[in-house]
Amino acid sequence: MPDCLTSELPFRLAGGLSTGAVYAMIALGYTLVYGVLQLINFAHSEVFMLGALGAFLTVSRLVPDGGVTSEAQGILILLAAAVPAVLLGGLAAVALERVAYRPLRRRNAPRLAYLISAIGASLFLSNSVRIWRGPNFETLPRTIQSRIVLDLGNTFFSGILPESVQRVRIQNRDIIVFLVAMAAMIAVDQFINRSRTGRGIRAVAQDSETAGLMGVNINKVITVTFIIGGLLAGAAGLLFAWSFGVTRFQIGFLPGVKAFTAAVLGGIGNIRGALLGGLLLGVFENVAAGCFGVQWRDVVAFLILVLVLLFRPTGLMGDREAT
């Protein structure tokens, strides 16, 4: 057995779960929009990128010259950065819907038109950032020190554990990202399932024509859907920027495609499916990176996408046929 499946496995699982949680947050936006509009919001990845940018700008302004003095200060700064990140995400998503999609909906355009418009919007957004911030990676100042919080090799009962488990070391970063992402997604799930607006979203997703006849304001539902997706993607951007420590105009693309893969894997249109798909994809690709080398990680993710679409287009939990 290779290391990636034995001694490295717990470590890879932890990393995979935290990356996967970020994918899942973005995937939720794809899935929600797909539910109400039956289209892939191709520019969603840039919403995520803008969230990361918002986080970066805030953090780099708030962190004092000599660096943060205490962990509490770091946490406060991150919390403060969450506000612009999430707002920027929500705002960008709504603007996207208004500018790139609504005019097309009005004239009942063919599906192809939406995709092309979305690609255009995506190019516009990412290159706006490129023009403003330049083409290079920008580094976030340190806020919370990344450290190992769980080291099974160094506890009271380490002796009784198998050697491979003893090597498990989990970082605070992975735990925080995972927990924050879970909390955000549970909140959205509850909102969709419990609130009046959420009911509207589900109604439109089921049958928008009937929902319209029943008095649901479809345009409003669509706007709200984009906002929710945008808020989540913005928050995911913050987590991403913090956990990798960098941001750039192009960071949206790969997580975007992977989140879409996650949405399809879980079953497009299905909220819990997006969560499951995100976590699974994060774990798969992280383990695969260990087995085949990190340069093949993205290939594994893309292969999963292709295979799922070919063999189980409804995804793991979905009921919608993707063909």
């Binding site: 191709f42 599906r111 495609v257 399809v264 893309f302 679409l309």
Partner: peptide
């Protein structure tokens, strides 16, 4: 032959994935 059975926007994403695979390889 496998992917062209997919509906439009899925085809777009799959071909995008394929393009990236070729580049990474």
């Amino acid at each position: 032959s496998p992917t062209l059975r997919l509906r439009g926007d899925y085809l777009a994403i799959v071909t995008l994935g394929f393009g990236e695979i070729v580049r990474i390889v």
